[in-house]
Design a protein around this nucleic acid. Sequence first.
DNA 1: CGGTATCCGATACGATACTG
DNA 2: CAGTATCGTATCGGATACCG
Lengths: 128, 128
Amino acid sequence: MAARPAPDKNCEHIDPRVEALVTELIGRVADKWTMILLEVLEENGVQRFTQLARAVPDISQKMLTQTLRRMERDGMLTRTVHPVVPPRVDYALTPLGETLSEAFCGVWMWAEANLDRVERAREEFDAR
Amino acid sequence: MAARPAPDKNCEHIDPRVEALVTELIGRVADKWTMILLEVLEENGVQRFTQLARAVPDISQKMLTQTLRRMERDGMLTRTVHPVVPPRVDYALTPLGETLSEAFCGVWMWAEANLDRVERAREEFDAR
DNA sequence: CGGTATCCGATACGATACTG
DNA sequence: CAGTATCGTATCGGATACCG
């Protein structure tokens, strides 16, 4: 039998000197709200503040603002303020944000595909 | 000009009824320590408790235990206690854990590839 | 060795009120 | 509309001590 079914998909690691930095970046980016906002923007294109709030009903205004600012700072998205009244602010993914969104795509698909498997694993574990 | 450079990579969304569940699962799984432990186990194979602790020096014993238990509950890994003294406990990825690790591979590669881009974006943002 | 239990500080987060 | 400011709680997570 083959020791490894797919040894090729190599993710192999990383220069140890940058490993800590990559880990920090992962910690920043592997955030629930960040992932969800990337998804919403990738699917629907440019969105304004209220649209995002409606698309993600569970997020508080505070977390929405905070997450958007952090994503803007990290270069994931641009924030455009239109000088009109009432004010209008548009959020759009940058190319960098789009590539991250694509990278997360595999995780979304995994989650959707394996939801029930995880659910059953939990039940089995809790039953012990 | 093409409106979309790569419209194909479609991650498209999801049945709205399961969307909340998927989101919850993402929140559980998109965790810094979880991602790192998946990586370590994927790269090095079966590991015992102390080996994991050494491989991830920044994690406290509490978080290591806690994260491993949660991953075990979610069916990502198996925990095998050998009845010897001193005790020996082995942790190994399940096939489910391996597929998640592969899904995260793209995110690791993204982080490594774009570290400097994010760094520069931050500097630029902070300079304003 | 591989944990558990307890205490404690930091920070994440939500709710609410207010503003240009 | 798109925020900021403030407050209170809850959860995260480290340090320490102890145990089979």
